[in-house]
């Protein structure tokens, strides 16, 4: 299962968009909690809107045994722990074998630019360790240093003792972050999706045509 939430550049969301479109995952549930900052919009993956999309939704593929939670807005900090506690219970009830939390950290935290632009935390002998990706460092107080990663670390801390869990983060800056999402998607393909199978092309979701909003009105010129 992959989970994402708002962090620098929203690369997690963009990557989940790519996973959903490329693997043709189906929406199976919406997730509602008072902590989720609300949002209602058109379907990001289809031209014909038959169902509005909400801030937090679950997409799955039974054949591939993959589920992703797409969280399109942020979490209200005051209610975050309550939300995470319920999420933890649901994850346990669903018997999910492994969770990957996708997030990003500020690019200026990458001190050696020749090293991998990814970093991770994991509680298992993950393939990440074999890919020359650095683990996220722990400071003198025993806390992970991942500035800009949003709630990813907190969620990892709540889940790591009950399920196989990893945080996969990319060093990014704000801007057009679609190339970062492609890089993250390629890494996810390599780590979790291919497993000896032939590679497949990545499909771009419809909503990416509107990353910078609509064109300005003609009357402006």
């Amino acid at each position: 299962m992959a989970y994402t939430h708002v962090s620098v550049g929203n690369v997690g969301q963009l990557t989940v968009d790519l996973i959903i479109t490329t693997l043709n995952l189906k929406k199976v549930a919406s997730i509602w909690h008072p902590a989720i900052i609300p949002f209602i919009g058109g379907d990001p993956y289809q031209v014909e809107v038959d169902n509005p999309c909400t801030a937090c939704e679950l997409y799955t593929s039974e054949a591939l045994k993959i589920a992703v939670i797409q969280l399109r807005s942020s979490i209200e900090p005051r209610l975050a722990l309550d939300f995470f506690a319920l999420l933890r219970t649901d994850i346990l009830n669903l018997n999910i074998s492994e969770i990957v939390i996708l997030t990003t950290v500020f690019a200026y935290e990458l001190h050696n630019i020749e090293s991998s632009h990814f970093c991770y935390i994991s509680n298992s002998d993950t393939k990440l360790k074999k890919l020359h990706i650095s683990p996220i460092v722990v400071n003198e107080f025993g806390k992970y240093v991942a500035n800009g990663a949003g709630f990813a670390i907190k969620l990892y801390e709540l889940l790591h003792d009950v399920v196989k869990c990893s945080v996969l983060a990319k060093y990014v800056s704000e801007g057009d972050n679609r190339p970062d999402a492609f890089a993250m998607m390629n890494l996810i393909k390599e780590l979790y999706l291919l497993e000896g199978k032939n590679s497949f092309p990545i499909k771009i979701p419809l909503s990416w045509n509107y990353v910078f909003g609509n064109p300005p009105p003609v009357g402006l010129f």
Partner: peptide, 18 residues
């Protein structure tokens, strides 16, 4: 420090919801 969509302040501790 650039402006960002990462709204969460990393130094902030989460409190139990009352």
């Amino acid at each position: 420090i650039p402006t960002t969509r990462a709204l969460w302040d990393d130094e902030e501790e989460l409190q139990e919801y009352v």
